[in-house]
Design a protein around this nucleic acid. Structure first.
Lengths: 340, 340
DNA sequence: CTGAAAGCGCTTACAG
DNA sequence: CTGAAAGCGCTTACAG
């Protein structure tokens, strides 16, 4: 064995005076090896710094032990939580995580198979809006390519996924704002290509309807899940003479933008204006006042989705759907509606 | 070819009526193939949805086309910028990026070789503090394992790296605060295991010395590069009767924490207290008032470090060191020192 | 309990 | 310009 070269199974077999098959058995915890042989092999392997070559294992097993995580990139906090959740499940496993951020999911939909195949992935975790993209779902399904989805809103028959109740969560937040006396609650919507935008709007409108509060179309502003889009949307809402007393943004980044707009315009939060977010990402405790929001267990969803994918790949039994609870987290950005 | 099975080079060769070697030539842009043969092969390959199996290529070429990105995880904004920079260089390449967040660099130092080998990486990008960790550097070097470093402060002979002038940047910010009339400028240090903490302290102290302003040891507080640690450190600084008029935090997350502390304590920023950060990460424009900070080109550093690594692996010529400029970005969190 | 043979899907080195 | 053979480092299927 020359210097710098990695030890192979052959090196270990030769030194331990066994066949390569026996070395293979030891490293795969296969039966039919005496403890004595096992110890001898392990001793040599350690001395030689031997690690099985995953690439060779992959070739014969027709798998790469590489999992892909697809996402668009609206919020760094969300992305990092996703990754950490997925990695949590993979820790100590042979699987590795390849990150696949895309500018726009729709731009890669047609090439999804080329992408996953040339990257030699064993499976992928899809996040919104990819988890609902018809072309992506169709192509992966037709090719029998393993995937799991986080928070899909349609086609539940297309395999295991994790979900939360977006509609119920938005209704809960709206009811909370109503309970504070607000009657003019504006909403800043997220990226329209993300299905959760519609779900959260639905929860909001149903809560208003149940309370007999008319929904005003001019109180709905379009955002894109980014801080800047929230800032701009809030500016439009707040520039009106007849402005709302509360703003419910569909994620925390946009809510943070709305808080910034209020600061810039000299409007006091929450005394003159309540602002609520959605996600409970890191940003919620960083802005001032701290954000009232819906806690979404992004970490848990990613960890469990990854667990589902691994179970599928290893043909082990697994759930079809895992639902995660959401909770209302009240902080300082919301308060009683100002007297009219 | 059964359904669901991926096409191989053999399938393409058979259909196109050539040898597998010819198919290999076409996909590797090798010379000595007539355009006619090339077209024929490509046509068949497209029809069969053929993609070369990277795993097989990896086995014969003794490489995986997998690059690892090591980092501790203080700030989501920093991490996402790092990843995006690295991926920018890899876009359209055969290489894929495996993310390797670690709780503590020192915890994995002894096993660094096991880690990179069992993950079958071709090379790794090291970020602070891993880029200065003696055990990691020694083990990788001894094993001839390819690595590049972002912002190392020692052992420049250990291979290509990207740097910025941490000392100069901290001096520049301190000089700016002095120019605003501040004479009591506190510093919140970062994680002591990160060498930049010392470098930034050095820049700060040298600027004070040059201006003839005495440095007070009780104006130096320890943080850990996290929002919460900045919040706590600032609370300690601001609880004193004789409090500083400016706080220079060694990163933006801690500066954001300091702003939060000021808000919570009813201290106006910047009228009563100036606060400055370091990094110019996304958070700098999200907190209110917006943060005066040092712009660090994290994206550029990661992109260029990755480019250096790829060049090394492909044995192409490359720079030894790439230095990136830092700039002072003034926003609303700093202002003239209050009258004494 | 252990091992020899074949093969995963490519590329390298060589021959023509 | 094109191809047949050998081999990368493992596991699977089989034999003993």
């Amino acid at each position: 064995m020359e210097l710098g070269r990695r030890a192979t199974i052959i090196d270990v077999a030769r030194e331990a005076d066994v066949s390569i098959k026996t070395v293979s058995r030891v490293f795969n915890d296969a039966p039919n090896v005496t403890q004595k042989t096992r110890d001898k092999v392990m001793k040599v392997a350690t001395a030689l710094h031997y690690h099985p070559n995953v690439v060779a294992q992959g070739l014969v097993g027709r798998r790469s032990y590489l999992l892909g995580l697809f996402y668009e990139n609206p919020s760094p906090n969300y992305v990092v939580e996703l990754q950490q959740g997925a990695l949590k499940r993979l820790h100590g496993e042979k699987y590795r995580l390849v990150v696949l951020p895309v500018e726009q999911v729709s731009a890669i939909a047609d090439n999804i198979l080329s992408l996953v195949r040339s990257a030699a992935l064993d499976g992928v975790v899809l996040t919104p809006p990819a988890s609902d993209h018809p072309v992506i779902l169709e192509k992966l399904t037709a090719a029998h390519f393993p995937f799991v989805r986080i928070a899909p809103t349609r086609a539940p028959e297309l395999g295991p996924h994790t979900i939360t109740d977006d509609v119920g969560a938005a209704r809960m937040m709206t009811e909370y704002l109503l309970s504070l006396g607000h009657r003019r609650i504006a909403m800043i919507k997220g990226d329209p290509t993300h299905p959760s935008s519609e779900a959260r709007l639905l929860g909001y409108s149903s809560a208003l309807a149940a309370a007999g509060v008319p929904m005003r179309l001019d109180d709905i502003e379009q955002g894109m899940f980014t801080f800047d889009s929230g800032l701009e949307a809030a500016k439009r809402l707040l520039a009106r003479a007849d402005r709302p007393t509360a703003i419910f943004a569909q994620n925390d980044d946009m809510a943070a933008g709305a808080i910034m707009a209020a600061h810039d315009m000299g409007i006091e939060v929450p005394a003159q204006l309540s602002i609520a977010g959605f996600d409970d990402s890191a940003i919620a405790r960083i802005v001032w006042p701290r954000l009232t929001t819906i806690h979404q267990p992004v970490f848990d969803m990613a960890r469990d989705a990854t667990a589902l994918l691994v179970a599928m790949l290893e043909k082990k039994p697994h759930e079809g759907v895992i639902q995660h609870p959401v909770t209302l987290v009240t902080r300082q950005s919301t308060g009683p509606a100002p007297a009219a």
